[in-house]
Design a binder for these strands. Structure first.
Lengths: 200, 200
DNA sequence: CAACAGTGCAAGTAAGTACTTGCACTCGCG
DNA sequence: CGCGAGTGCAAGTACTTACTTGCACTGTTG
């Protein structure tokens, strides 16, 4: 009796991806609590019941979504050549970090307004930044030991990451339409390097 | 028939303040949407109906709350002595900004997950930072003109604010228990100043 | 004293939300 | 072909939430 010619079934995996994409979009805009399963289903072009058949409940869905978009960092791709020129290294690191944080900005911001019980996904979103922080600290320490920089490597790494964090996150509210990303990164790196380079 | 000896009536203003305090606390923890009027009333020690008698609806309540905690900046107290020592000026500015942003951190973070229709309160929370940005830019420009610093004042102000923003906001996820606020601020200012000070 | 503004309390309403269920359909695979 | 996994659809349940209402009470103010 029921004709259903319009909808062709999709693979299970494709459905998951569509749900993830929709969920992420809504989480970024309204936060975890403000996002409804009905909206996710609608935006994903999927029936609401399918959400629950896949993930069981809303919390598990969103956890899976965040984990899906926040995989572990590719450390190999991130590690700079430790023998290279500092300025070039930092520039490469800054661009890598900026791109990566930019692509996760919405999820990272959403973790700021999460309740404690949701910290599983929140921790996942911050895993990558935490690892990068460590790598950066090691890098700074090596350069200090070589006598190229001077100061506390922990604070140096913190400051360097902070400038990028502020750029990415702050851009949502503070707009600088007259400057390009490269201009800002270059300026920040120059000031930073002038500030921490060892004087002769 | 009903005895009501336990509750002594409070002034209308005191009730408002109690509601604001409770609302702010909950907004910080759960976000705007995650906060229920029932919770606010309970935490404020006030009947839920009183909330609506005061503010009409939940949105108006929260808008009023954010506006109440985000008054215009006291520019006079913020303006540094333009003839003073740069390092001392920046230290004073940094401490002022840090304290101020720290006290508003929860509300500022909440604005990141707001929907567009709620931007009224969101704009209010960002009014102060925007004004400070402008003051800072002017300050940097003046010092550049005097030949004490070199570089683009806009980017300098942006970088300086960014370090503080990153400290305050990032502290929610990135912990540095081994360092005091003063240590970090001093380090950041030193690097910044070394980086932008005019070389002879 | 008398009016009144502000509040507490209890009950209720309408809408939204997470989640379930039973059934029909369809595609791919053995 | 036939079966099963994955899905759409429609209806429904139990719960939460914003918001209302009528009434009793109390401190303040004229």
């Amino acid at each position: 009796m029921l004709q259903q010619e319009t909808h062709s079934p999709r693979s299970s995996e494709e459905t998951r991806l569509r749900i993830f994409a929709a969920a992420r979009q809504l989480i970024a805009k309204k936060g975890r609590r403000g996002t409804t399963t009905r909206e996710i289903a609608e935006l994903a072009g999927v029936n609401e019941a399918t959400l629950f058949r896949h993930f069981g409940n809303k919390d598990a869905l969103i956890d899976a979504c965040v984990l899906h978009y926040c995989p572990a960092v590719d450390l190999q791709a991130f590690l700079p050549n430790r023998d290279g020129n500092i300025e070039e290294d930092l520039r490469a690191i800054a661009h890598f970090m900026t791109e990566r944080m930019e692509s996760l900005r919405d999820l990272i911001l959403a973790t700021f307004v999460e309740e404690e019980q949701w910290s599983a996904a929140g921790d996942a979103a911050w895993r990558a930044p935490a690892m990068i922080k460590q790598i950066l600290t090691d890098y700074m320490a090596a350069r200090v030991q070589r006598g190229e920089l001077e100061g506390d490597p922990v604070l140096m790494a913190r400051l360097f990451m902070g400038t990028i964090f502020a750029y990415v996150v702050g851009r949502k509210r503070m707009h600088y339409p007259d400057y390009t990303l490269d201009q800002i990164i270059d300026f920040n790196i120059n000031v930073f390097l002038n500030g921490v380079r060892k004087k002769n």
